[in-house]
Amino acid sequence: MIVFILCVLLFLVGLYGVLIKRNLIKIIIGLAIMEYSVNLFLILVGYRDKGTSPIVTKGLENALFVDPLPQAMVLTAIVIGVATTALLLGIAVMIYKKYGTFNIRKINELKG
C-alpha cells in the first residue's frame, strides 16, 4: 500500500511543478514526472507478489505470473510520452529564440 501512496505523492510533485514553477523547462520536467508516476502506477497494478515473468514454459504452466498487459501499455505510454516531451522541448527552444527568456511571466503576448 505504501508504494501506491508514494506513487500518488510523485504525481502531486509533478503537478506542483507544472502549476507553480515559472520556468518552461521546469514545467516540462513536472509533466515528465507526472507521466512517470502514472507509468509506475500501471506497473504496480500488474505486479503480483512473488510472481515470475509471464513466459509459459513446460512444468511452469500454473506458476504465478505478473500481469503482462499493463507492461505492454506502459511501453506504449512511454513512447507517446517521448513524443510529447520532444515536441514540448522543441517549442520551448523556439520560444527561447523568439523571446530570449524561459520565464513564463515575461512570455505574455496573448491576453483576454
Partner: peptide, 17 residues
C-alpha cells in the same frame, strides 16, 4: 510566430495534464 508558439505551449501543458 510569437503568439502561436506561446498558445501551442499552453495547449500542450494542459493537454498533457
Amino acid at each position: 510566430r510569437k503568439e502561436e508558439l506561446e498558445a501551442s505551449f499552453k495547449y500542450q501543458v494542459l493537454g498533457g495534464i
